[in-house]
Design a protein around this nucleic acid. Structure first.
Lengths: 335, 335
DNA sequence: ACTTGGCACTCGGGAATGCAGAGTGCTAGA
DNA sequence: TCTAGCACTCTGCATTCCCGAGTGCCAAGT
């Protein structure tokens, strides 16, 4: 009976604080939630909770506020993800289904997530590592120049202009293209370096310098894209009246790909939703991040999530992130 | 003599206000700038300037602040663009030269501009209208599916997956590709619709449905990209301690492509630098925008600029925008 | 062993007050 | 036409004061 009520009190504190964003006192608690006890009892419980580090008071004689540890307990044990209504799910689905290409999918996803959660949404482009080569195209531009286009099964297209050491004609290019595609078609991007290693040797003598140049650019493309692109949307949601953390820091972090990457984090578990609360974050203490992996089928391609104040509505945010991750996975699998 | 000094006073007010961001009074003026007259005289001049609408006082017995009209006069007649130092120019050049593709050019440009001006930078992707077709590629994916890739001379690549009404094989695709390229190679994108109008008729009967489908997707790609992509960077600079305007509005505008487009404005004159001050802006009164066109050679491809508080250092901002516009034009022309 | 009511205590935040400084407009004189 | 002086106005800042919300603790009740 004892511990049970304390947990209920913690839950109530988190919920109230999230909705009012003001420290919550013992009186207010018993009024709103029908705990069957008096404020004094609650006060005792709160004293214990505070001693254990789950809540704190901003200053003497103010109500209590959850600590990071308190939110953590709340998220882990006291709440469950709130699923989206079916109407919302339908809306998500149709909105995402309208995308025309990968860029569009990512763009729509990030905007949708920002709008749903009223927070800053962050989406990582699908990682190349897990994807496969669908086609490699070599397009002659001039005598000494070709454009190399790499198309992957996620719909992503990378292109580079390559300056060649010697003249090439349409026929030789076509041959190289055929060899290259025969070799690479359908293979995973991270296998590409191994597969092309001995490729020049299989070509006629005179093609080797050109082929070597092209291959080196191809490999460069792969590593360049290795540290992936990340986009965000909904920065305007940061301007909410109550954002205690330095706006400047957050905005700077958002524009710094590397930091953003760290924030999204590595996937400890593929499909699970990860929540990082306040000081658990590598940078940007004072904010929380709710993230999930997404990707077609079983293999996780990348991550997406939202960033918001520590005081956020975790159940619904997690619900939204989960729903969006699922639907975008579905869209990607279909295309 | 009379009017001359009044202008000098206005210039001094603008300069002081820009650097201190506090209303400037008559005493402070004569101290800092060595006008050869007494504060009282300045006060008279200020009274006149105020009556003419160039300056205003936030409240009685405060210093004066320039109005939009005042800034306008300052920009038009009282100041001249401050060129960048050669060291800065070199830095810009080498930074931009490191770009590997169009995306990278745009990304680097926008970041550079944000950093140089310490404001929000906005860059529009080169417009397709003015660019030309370099190559059209049709890549078979399955029996009923091809990928259409459009490469333009600005290095931009658009791709779409096309579902075909009937089966096609490699040979027929190659033929279509050849016809398409023969027809479109090097032509301006805005001419494409005319050029392809009668194209199906020049193909064998059985290819027509497939060709029609492909063409319709091609045209769709063109119009979709017509309203162009715009990117921004440096949002963190909005968090400067003194930003009177609603942060929220600005951030929202930044994420709204259409609004951003309007803000950058149409080019009244191709190479000139346009300055829009405060209420001259279609949206976002209270901010100023300094923009310029850029593009390889004579033809202007798109626009770039920065957005900042009305109280900004126009001469140096204009210098930075001009320099960046020039160098990015140069880079684009070279590639 | 908990729970409850009462009570004294603490502290933040808003309103009211007062003061100093900066800036102006006006007028009379050079 | 400019200058000097003077009275006036207003903001910003610090100080003070007070109210109310909320706590902790203690003693009494179940």
């Amino acid at each position: 009976m004892v511990d049970d009520r304390k947990l209920a009190v913690l839950r109530a504190i988190v919920e109230d604080y999230v909705s009012t964003s003001e420290p919550v006192g013992s009186k207010a608690l018993v009024d709103r939630h029908n705990l069957g006890v008096s404020p004094a009892t609650i006060r005792n419980d709160m004293a214990v909770l505070e001693e254990q580090g789950y809540i704190t008071q901003p200053h003497t004689s103010a109500g209590r506020v959850p600590t990071d540890k308190g939110y953590r307990l709340f998220v882990d044990k006291l709440s469950q993800i709130k699923p989206m209504s079916s109407a919302e799910r339908r809306a998500i689905e149709t909105f995402l289904a309208g995308a025309v290409d990968l860029d569009d999918v990512v763009m729509r996803t990030v905007r949708l997530l920002a709008q749903l959660t009223r927070q800053v949404a962050v989406v990582q482009y699908p990682t190349l590592d897990a994807s496969t080569v669908r086609h490699v195209e070599i397009v002659p531009l001039t005598d000494h120049r070709v454009m190399l286009v790499l198309i992957t099964n996620t719909g992503r297209v990378d292109q580079r202009v390559v300056e060649l050491p010697d003249k090439v004609d349409e026929i030789r290019v076509a041959h190289m293209r055929a060899v290259l595609n025969a070799c690479l078609d359908g293979c995973r991007l991270n296998k590409v370096p191994d597969l092309v290693a001995d490729l020049p040797e299989r070509l006629p003598e005179e093609d080797r310098p050109a082929a070597a140049t092209i291959l080196s650019v191809l490999l460069e493309t792969l590593v360049d894209r290795h540290d992936e692109k990340i986009v965000f949307a909904g920065a305007a949601n940061l301007a909410a009246p109550d954002f205690t953390v330095g706006l400047r820091e957050v905005l700077e972090a958002l524009e710094e790909q590397v930091v953003l990457m760290r924030l999204l984090g590595d996937a400890p578990d593929k499909a699970a939703i990860t929540v990082r609360i306040g000081s658990e974050n590598p940078y940007l203490q004072g904010t929380s991040i709710v993230a999930a992996g997404y990707g077609s089928g079983d293999k996780q391609l990348a991550r997406l999530g939202v960033l918001g104040p520590t005081r956020m509505d975790y159940p619904v945010t997690m619900g939204a992130v989960r729903a969006v991750a699922r639907y975008v996975s579905q869209i990607l699998a279909a295309s």
